[in-house]
């Protein structure tokens, strides 16, 4: 097995002894390679961090400038020798700076996908398939019921709702890093040009995204006490804030949520979402399958998410496939109940 020769699963996470580094480790380690800036993958406290320049900048924003003792940036496509191994980062299309990590060792190639998607997203570089012997894929939406629709049709629903309920404030829950900015871009490209009100916790990351050359139109800070005056406006907030903002009843807000989980009605109803938008930064079932085929791998390991169906699908195609039980992923932004969090929470308790 290719993976077994190169990688070991430790309590801290996936470890490559040939290069003496960890990938997205769960606890502080001497040398960490980080796929992207979401907090279940990018944790503070490592001695040395290697990541794309964008991921390093995002980590500095989220964890403070002292998130690691030292950092090293590696742009997409550049190669770095670490011990006997060679590593390079390739666009994953998940969020700004997100990367798949290719490890080459003894003529074998292993790709750790991190989180990825294949849908178009103007806020980050598109996914690039990387040929490999062993593909280690995420499976957040690893069930054939998950097929993400065209995201512009979903934002179209939001704008249509504003037409039907012009006096009601539309509060849109969107994960602070990546989803919020993609949503802004989608709403603007649909021709909506009114100011959009941003919850405070989205401000700094959105500013960083704008600094990379993205135009989000007029954004205004949300002052919660002024919510009753925002009838007919769009407010963007992290999922965690959705409930408390919506409880300010006098504004009669409409609860909107942008997430791949909104594909399943019960998931939306559990949270009392009135307008679910199926917009995800993860690959859906078809794109997971397509990406596995594109990688040309003969060995597949499936990490966090719904691994059973994907492992079964790959085995049916003659691949050596098995689940890789990494604990701790899919817990992105526990305090904010980000996209991945809902799935696990919903399974755990009524």
């Amino acid at each position: 097995m290719v993976a077994a020769e190169c990688l070991t699963l430790t309590a801290a996470g996936l470890y490559c002894s040939a290069g003496d580094f960890y990938i997205d480790p769960l606890r502080p380690v001497p040398h960490a390679l980080i796929t992207h800036g979401h907090s279940d993958h990018a944790r503070p406290g490592h001695s040395k961090v290697l990541a794309t320049p964008e991921t390093l900048a995002i980590m500095a924003i989220r964890c403070g400038p002292a998130f690691a003792k030292s950092t090293q940036a590696l742009a997409y496509g550049e190669t770095l020798k670490l011990g006997d191994a060679e590593v390079s980062f390739h666009p994953a299309g998940h969020i700004l700076g997100s990367a798949q990590i290719l490890i080459s060792l003894n003529g074998k190639r292993i790709v750790v996908s991190g989180d990825y998607k294949r849908q178009a997203d103007p806020t980050c570089s598109p996914f690039e398939p990387v040929r490999c012997d062993c593909f280690i894929t995420e499976a957040t939406f690893g069930l054939p019921v998950f097929r993400h629709p065209d995201p512009s049709a979903e934002t179209g629903k939001l704008l249509a709702s504003l037409q039907i309920f012009p006096e009601r404030c539309h509060i849109v829950g969107a994960y602070a890093l990546g989803k919020a900015q993609r949503l802004l871009a989608l709403i603007r490209s649909a021709g909506y040009d009114r100011p959009i009100f941003l919850h405070n916790s989205l401000a700094e990351l959105t500013r960083y995204y704008a600094g990379t050359g993205l135009a989000f139109g007029e954004l205004r800070p949300l002052i919660a006490t002024e919510l009753p005056k925002l009838g007919g406006e769009i407010v963007l907030c992290p999922p965690m804030a959705l409930e408390s903002l919506a409880l300010r009843g006098d504004a009669e807000p409409r609860k909107v949520f942008a997430s791949g989980w909104m594909r399943v009605r019960a998931r939306a109803r559990q949270r009392g979402i009135e307008l679910p938008l199926v917009i995800s930064d993860h690959a859906d079932w078809d794109d997971l399958c397509r990406s596995i085929i594109d990688s040309g791998c003969h060995e597949l390991l499936v990490t966090h998410g719904e691994s059973d169906a994907l492992v079964y699908w790959a085995q049916q195609r003659g691949m050596a496939a098995s689940p890789l039980h990494l604990m701790g992923y899919g817990q992105e932004d526990i305090e904010g109940q980000g996209e991945e969090r809902i799935g696990t929470a919903a399974e755990g308790s009524p």
Binding site: L143, P144, V145, R263, V264, A266, E306, A309, Y312
Partner: peptide, 24 residues
């Protein structure tokens, strides 16, 4: 139309027959 094992996993997850079939 759909592999029975994948259908079972999906139905178990979605919990509603009409919805599972509509999605699959």
């Amino acid at each position: 139309r759909v592999d029975p094992y994948l259908f079972d996993l999906s139905y178990d997850y979605v919990g509603d027959l009409s919805e599972t079939v509509a999605l699959l």
